[in-house]
Write a protein that binds this DNA or RNA. Structure first.
Length: 206
DNA sequence: CGGCTGATCGTG
DNA sequence: ACGATCAGCCGA
């Protein structure tokens, strides 16, 4: 396993759009009970603080839930959505500036990660119904959505408000070089209520 | 592939 | 009440 450098505070202490673009190709690492999971980040969204109608912090909503967004760049923000899924974000900028990047999609960085992701993804489904044969379909959609990403990487609300520039279990490392022409931009997903902000091209993917 | 629906619960 | 969602199911 080649050694990759961990991303430092300086990386995250920039505006959310820059961090969102530059996180593409980087590797999210999480220590789980099943082993170390590494995912190459392939899709992100920027949430740009108190002026962004799409953001939880719009209008200065600094609450217990949104508090991690106000923390230093590199702080995790994991919240429960629709009562049953988690969404994983990393705060950008500095203390009191609540910009953040939603991680929407990763692909496994190695064979061990792929195996663990599959196990973690199958577990809840097996519980619901004794359905075999779903494996091939799950493999095609291992972590291609914010909820699926969290399940596949074993991320839950216990991973909220972690300083990812310091943690030994939860951090981001350098990955593969991405040329700017490989980065595509689109509208953010699932924020139709956000008025004109729903049309901003703040979603980035490879 | 695109569209629709039920599931489920912490937060404000 | 309401989601920064997902799986399952339907029809084309």
């Amino acid at each position: 396993m080649e050694k990759k450098k961990r991303l430092t505070r300086a990386f995250f202490a920039r505006d959310g759009i820059t961090v969102a673009r530059e996180l593409l190709g980087k590797i999210l690492v999480h220590e789980t009970p099943l082993g170390t999971v590494r995912g190459i980040i392939t899709e992100t969204e920027a949430y740009m603080g108190e002026e962004d109608k799409g953001s939880h912090t719009y209008g200065g909503r600094r609450t217990d839930r949104t508090e991690p967004m106000y923390h230093k760049g590199g702080t995790s923000y994991v919240y429960l959505i629709y009562g049953m899924y988690s969404c994983m974000n990393i705060a950008a900028m500095r203390e009191d500036i609540p910009q953040a990047v939603l991680l929407r999609s990763v692909i496994p960085a190695d064979a061990q990660s792929e195996r663990i992701m599959l196990d973690l993804r199958l577990a809840p489904l097996n519980q619901k119904r004794k359905r075999a044969g779903k494996e091939s379909n799950i493999k095609k959609h291992l972590a291609d959505g914010p909820g699926k990403l969290c399940i596949a990487m074993g991320i839950s609300r216990s991973d909220n408000d972690v300083d990812m520039t310091k943690s030994k279990e939860f951090y981001v490392t350098e990955g593969q070089e991405i040329r700017t022409e490989e980065i595509k931009a689109g509208k953010r997903i699932g924020i139709d209520y956000a008025g004109e902000a729903a049309d901003y091209l703040w979603r980035f993917y490879l």
